[in-house]
Amino acid sequence: MKIVFMGTSSFAVPSLKALVENFQVVGVITQPDRPAHRGQKLTPSPVKKMALELGLCLYQPEKKSQIEETVLKLKPDCVVVVAYGRILTKEVLGIPPYGCINLHASLLPKYRGAAPIQRCLMAGEKLTGNTVMLMDEGMDTGDILRQESVPIDEEDNLLSLSEKLSTKGAKLLVSTLKDWFEGKIAPTPQDHQQATYAPPIWKEEYRICWKASAQSVKDRVRGLYPNCYAFLEEGERIKVLKVRVCQESGEPGELIHQRKFQVACGENSVEVLELINPKGKRVSGEDFLRGYQVKKLR
């Protein structure tokens, strides 16, 4: 079977490697290089780096029409999409005889959309998973081919859960494709009444609101790792990497203890265990308090 792979982020890399080991990947489509980091230097996607390392034919179309032209030229039996970041047109969806198949990091129809891993962690979920589905014109609305549940550990954050789901998802994708090509799977329509959504993260969501409950603060820190932040009273910014929930209460944002970096929330409090200080150094909460006088966060 000839496969065209579409992907962009690091989440897609294990799937690309697994497909190369099991099928004939005739081309890889990824998004154009984008400015990144402080210098805003054009940076290739993780999928581009891996495709070049594997010696695969690489394409970076800008326009929808160029995506269609590329797929038509490659004549794949199937298009596989993992974290590509663009919605495919009806024309592209209709090209491959075995359809366009997507690996999505949630148990659809729950958490349709761009940020399923972040949103499920922020919601305090205990269980998530991967879905392999047949794509249609909607956003993650296509028929399901196969699903696999993955438990969320108490200390999982965006990084650890993404790695777990991407590794397990690659294996699920390969086994599903093999059975799909052999006619062993009957697609199952989603129950649209049960659908929930995972929209992109807004930049305002990275700032911690201390009026929220301690558990909500912890789930936000986990789900948006490593980018949640708060301000010291003088206006300096810190990034909060890891917290634990404590039972003591106080005025939201105030430090409850001077030796432990324990901050009151709207309900209970959190102890900040790890953070990045205003100088950009990763430190423990206790070490941070040895160098900074903190009475309140905002």
Results as ranks from 00 to 15, higher is better:
2 K>S: 15
3 I>N: 06
6 M>I: 13
14 P>L: 11
18 A>V: 13
19 L>P: 07
22 N>A: 10
28 V>F: 06
28 V>I: 12
32 P>F: 10
38 R>D: 00
39 G>Y: 01
39 G>T: 10
40 Q>H: 08
42 L>T: 11
50 M>E: 15
53 E>W: 05
57 C>K: 14
58 L>K: 09
61 P>H: 04
64 K>S: 12
67 I>C: 05
68 E>G: 01
71 V>L: 03
72 L>S: 13
74 L>C: 06
77 D>F: 05
79 V>Q: 04
80 V>W: 02
83 A>M: 09
83 A>N: 12
86 R>C: 01
86 R>V: 14
88 L>Q: 08
94 G>A: 14
99 G>K: 03
100 C>L: 12
106 S>C: 12
108 L>A: 07
112 R>Y: 03
117 I>T: 04
119 R>N: 09
120 C>L: 13
125 E>T: 06
131 T>S: 14
138 G>E: 09
144 I>V: 15
163 E>C: 07
176 T>S: 05
180 W>A: 06
183 G>W: 02
184 K>E: 07
196 T>G: 03
203 K>I: 14
209 C>F: 00
212 A>M: 15
213 S>M: 10
213 S>E: 11
213 S>F: 00
220 R>H: 10
229 Y>N: 08
230 A>F: 02
234 E>P: 06
238 I>Q: 07
244 R>H: 00
246 C>Y: 04
253 G>P: 12
254 E>L: 03
254 E>R: 11
258 Q>Y: 08
277 N>F: 04
277 N>T: 15
280 G>R: 03
282 R>E: 14
283 V>E: 15
285 G>A: 10
286 E>W: 06
291 G>I: 10
292 Y>S: 06
292 Y>C: 04
294 V>I: 15
298 R>C: 14
